[in-house]
């Protein structure tokens, strides 16, 4: 338990908690980025350099961007006024607290865990590459297939429903009385007129 580990773990957990509890979805996604960068730092702390960098590349560079795009495309970038928690939230938190207690008890009381700390393993990217290309080549191919299938599936799911134009699908209703779409975040009316009225 070194000091860097404690600091990184604290930042990661705090950011994860923030990602799950902030009201504004964009703030949540930014906290999520911090949590995953913290996890990558934990991997680096555990001498897993390649995995740490891959984590940053995939989570910060790709998944966070996807989430941000999804937030803006579903027009939920504004802070919601209604409740953000589902009705039965108390049970959910109770169950998760129970899960944590059980896991923590198991970790702290287990005698199966190795007690002595081994020295840092000497793994290079070359080792990982050779393992991927020899021993793990079948999983690698399957992952490639899975990613292709997921990509095609995601495109098909997110396509507009067939047979409908934009107008019929109700996306392009011209309604002069409605407030402008919130994807562009107009400043709230109090912020605009507050100073002048």
């Amino acid at each position: 338990m070194s000091l860097p580990f404690l600091i990184i773990a604290f930042v990661t957990l705090f950011a994860a908690a923030a990602a799950m509890s902030l009201r504004n979805l964009v703030h949540c996604s930014l906290a999520f980025v911090v949590a995953f960068a913290g996890l990558a730092a934990l991997y680096l702390n555990l001498d897993a350099q390649f995995v740490g960098f891959a984590q940053i590349l995939v989570y910060v560079g790709a998944i966070a961007i996807l989430i941000v795009f999804a937030i803006l495309l579903t027009r939920s970038g504004d802070t919601p006024n209604e409740a953000v928690l589902a009705p039965g939230w108390f049970y959910g938190i109770a169950v998760s607290a129970a899960v944590f207690t059980l896991l923590g008890w198991a970790v702290l009381s287990s005698s199966a865990l190795p007690k002595e700390v081994s020295s840092a393993p000497q793994t290079t990217v070359k080792n990982i590459g050779e393992a991927l290309m020899n021993k793990y080549v079948l999983p690698l191919e399957i992952i490639g297939l899975l990613l292709t299938a997921a990509m095609i599936g995601a495109v098909i799911i997110a396509l507009r429903e067939p047979g409908k134009t934009k107008m019929e699908a109700g996306e392009l209703k011209i309604d002069k009385t409605a407030p402008p779409s919130s994807i562009l975040h107009p400043p709230s009316s109090t912020a605009l007129t507050g100073g002048h009225s």
């Binding site: 799950m20 509890s21 409740a83 039965g88 938190i93 998760s96």
Partner: peptide, 11 residues
């Protein structure tokens, strides 16, 4: 636990 709580409770 944090992830689980969030996934279950957020709307």
């Amino acid at each position: 636990a944090i992830g689980f709580a969030g996934a279950v409770t957020r709307r």
